[in-house]
């Protein structure tokens, strides 16, 4: 019986390895191009938001100083709501893209810092607008840590739920405390409200530490909002639950 003489297809193995590595590098390069595009897009959006902020600021100034009445509040409120929705959306994208990327970390961090400042700016502006327009509106300043807080996402879920339910009646301003070392403004607010644990919510100047559960948050938010049907439904649900419990 003849035993075979073994061969080694080294040429094919090398060619296959080279092709695979080339395809792989092409994939990675596309990833780098994509990250650049994402940073550029976020930067562009941020610039537009700067302009929108100036517009909101001017509108508030006009209403409070020149017109001195709240008849045109709907314009201010609509602009504010649209801009904050934009800010929310692009901040979500920023967090998502940053998580995806292993490069351009410095640029992402700078963008995050800018977005955090924008959130604080808009929170202050929204407070001002609420006073000028006496609007039925709840403002939530939400402190969380992306790196050192495993329960923070739970609070995010509950806030998103109410945001979807109440739309423009609820404005949430998330602040990532991990940025505090780079951004003194965050430290300033933390000190002002004595925030030492996360998540923490500031609603109407009152501090709520730890995860504020759905029912508790519903009570807090809906006691501030009278006109919204979602809150009317909410109170009805609470009442029927209470009736069920008492038998």
């Amino acid at each position: 019986m003849v035993r075979i003489k073994r061969k080694l297809s080294s040429d094919k193995i090398i060619v296959a390895a080279v092709i695979s590595v080339l395809i792989f590098i092409l994939g990675i390069s596309l990833g780098v191009i994509l990250t650049n595009e994402r940073v550029n897009w976020l930067d562009e959006v941020n610039k537009e938001q700067e302009v929108a902020y100036q517009s909101v600021q001017l509108q508030a100034y006009f209403l409070s100083s020149i017109l001195n009445n709240n008849a045109s509040c709907s314009v201010l409120h609509a602009t504010l709501e649209d801009t904050i929705a934009d800010l929310d959306y692009s901040l979500d994208k920023l967090v998502e893209y940053d998580k995806d990327s292993r490069i351009k970390k410095d640029e992402f961090d700078l963008l995050k810092r800018r977005y955090t400042l924008d959130n604080i700016k808009y929170w202050l502006m929204a407070k001002q607008a609420k006073d000028i327009c006496e609007k039925d509106l709840v403002l939530v300043l939400y402190f969380y840590s992306g790196e050192n807080c495993s329960i923070c996402p739970d609070q995010g879920v509950i806030l998103t739920y109410f945001k979807k339910k109440l739309n423009d009646k609820l404005l949430v301003f998330p602040i990532d405390v991990d940025m505090a070392d780079d951004e003194p403004m965050i430290k300033l607010i933390q000190k002002a409200y004595k925030i030492y644990q996360y998540p923490t919510l500031i609603i109407d100047g009152i501090k709520y530490e730890g995860v504020t559960q759905k029912n508790d948050l519903g009570n807090i938010i809906c006691s501030d909002i009278e006109s919204d049907s979602a809150c009317t439904d909410y109170w009805m649900d609470v009442m029927s639950e209470a009736e069920n419990e008492t038998g």
């Binding site: 990675i28 990833g31 191009i33 509950i158 559960q213």
Partner: peptide
């Protein structure tokens, strides 16, 4: 966490908001 109340999410269910930048091209390409 939200008491299994999915109604607020349903209104966004059919909203198709695609951003080309959302694709993680380096992985999806391979």
């Amino acid at each position: 966490l939200v008491g299994f109340d999915i109604t607020p999410y349903l209104k966004d269910f059919f909203k198709f908001n695609m951003n080309i930048l959302d694709f993680n091209i380096s992985f999806q390409f391979i």
